[in-house]
Amino acid sequence: MNDALFSQLTTLGSSVILLYGFTLLWRKSLHAYTVAFQWQSVMLTGLFLIIGYFGHDVELYLVAGFLFILKVLILPRYLGKLEQRFPGERESRPYVNVATSLVVAGLLVLLAYAITRPLVLVSDLPTRGGLPLAVGLIFVGLFVIITRKKALTQIVGFLVMENGIALLAVLGTYGIPLIIELGVFLDVLMGFLVMQVFVYHIHDTFESIDVDQLNELRH
């Protein structure tokens, strides 16, 4: 009974997290992306807590705390700053239009299901049902990075991908060792900061944060 609930909760949570990933595909304003990411991170935090609770892992609460601070508080704040800096920027013409994007994302999730089949078979954890969704989220994040033109969107895509990996970790193993987790957070933070700096540089130099302008270096 408990396990079943746990299992349903995690799968549901994972699904919602994945859906927030899909938000990136149909919205066009940068602000919506930030918000989607923020909510996704909130849900992820919640999932950490649930797994911590059902899995009796205190460490996960700690991780969830860090996660919340980093991905719900700090990063969206910086993202918000960025989007305010570049108010006119919208993801108006992505490489793949919305409808196709959604179809492709759906296919990617299907693919994730197919590919992660062995994982689900191998694991005996109640959370295993969410594993394909986590991999799917990684794919969707990748897809966003590939098809969206604004540097900012790419950052968000990257963060979503990170979320997917974190989701994979927590679902599959109830969280990787704490010290590693912390290191990862540090890296994500620093990586984000660097990227953010570059977004400013890009804007200063190219007067836009369209990445497809960066095409001078070739061959």
């Binding site: 197919a114 794919f139 990075i145 590939i146 033109k149 497809d212 270096l217």
Partner: peptide, 23 residues
């Protein structure tokens, strides 16, 4: 070709191809 998107695409495509192959 100079397009970052294309480059990322290579990564994604090879990833998916290899995953399919591995699976």
């Amino acid at each position: 070709a100079g397009s970052l998107h294309l480059y990322l695409m290579y990564v994604a495509v090879i990833l998916i191809l290899l995953l399919i192959a591995a699976r």
